[in-house]
Design a binder for these strands. Structure first.
Ligand code: FES
Ligand code: FES
Lengths: 144, 144
DNA sequence: ACAAACTCGGATAAATTTATCCGATATAGA
DNA sequence: TCTATATCGGATAAATTTATCCGAGTTTGT
């Protein structure tokens, strides 16, 4: 469904969000450990998240990643997925045609579109705050 | 969402189904032309569809691929997806954990599961017959 | 000024997916 | 039997995704 990069990106952002709620900045090393991801690969992903203004990065000693409070319930899963995997998963044709076009639908269009639309709605309405809250409440888990 | 192999596999099976309704056997070359796919790669996919008893293949002159009438409304998209991409897309965890486990859910579980379940239901209830009918009626299109 | 602790970003490598090539084999028909 | 026409299946190559390495630059604290 999502790329590995995107999965890491979502987990990393959730972790950063939780720590930012506690006003703590986290290092790359800490993130990779917490979400169990390859460190250098995670660095690339964090860079692109930073370029998309989803997280902030600071260089140097005591540097690391953080998220502004404004973003807690402003950034959604869609922002992250879009930044890393692009919009194909929630806009593209299920059978791989360049565009999904209801005027000239592919054989799977009618069955596929509504699910894709639900996915899109889910992604754009799910905020990091929500995901972080569940983890803080022990309802869901970042590691397993 | 689906792999290229799976997209080709779905298109190919739909095409074979339509031709089989007309009691015609189709060659690899014809399939690859009709669905606009790389010919040798398509051959591999058709082989695995044949091994999974989704289509039948015949060697030699006048050989090719066909589908038994019984399969028209027995084979679903799920059968094809399962044969080519496996079951991860409709059973696996959205954040890449080995298993989706409601007892120890990942941060995206509650949001993701219902969409994944809808996708699964769609795949297992959509038969080739339906897809073929739409194309025959001009409601959807195999090529674009 | 210096060292330690960080991220940045380019180069490279490994793994997987996608795609091609070709000899072996099977079938139909002349 | 011979030839043309097919798929089969193993080897290989290209492209993309995933992962690693390392020098350069930045910031903090001594
Ligand atoms: S045209 Fe393929 S999903 Fe809409
Ligand atoms: S545990 Fe991740 S989707 Fe269920």
């Amino acid at each position: 469904m999502f790329s590995k990069a995107c999965e890491y990106g979502i987990k990393a952002t959730v972790h950063i969000c939780i720590r930012s709620q506690q006003h703590e900045r986290v290092s790359l090393k800490n993130i990779a450990e917490k979400i169990d991801s390859p460190i250098a690969f995670t660095a690339k992903i964090l860079q692109s998240l930073a370029k998309n203004d989803i997280i902030n990065s600071s260089k140097g000693a005591k540097g690391g990643y953080e998220m502004s409070e404004d973003n807690f319930n402003k950034i959604t899963l869609l922002d992250i997925v879009k930044a890393i995997d692009g919009d194909n998963i929630y806009n593209g044709c299920g059978l791989g045609y360049k565009n999904c076009n209801a005027k000239k639908p592919c054989p799977m269009h009618f069955q596929f579109k509504s699910i894709r639309d639900d996915l899109k709605k889910m992604l754009e309405t799910t905020t990091l705050q929500e995901l972080a809250d569940d983890i803080n409440e022990g309802t869901s888990f970042l590691v397993r």
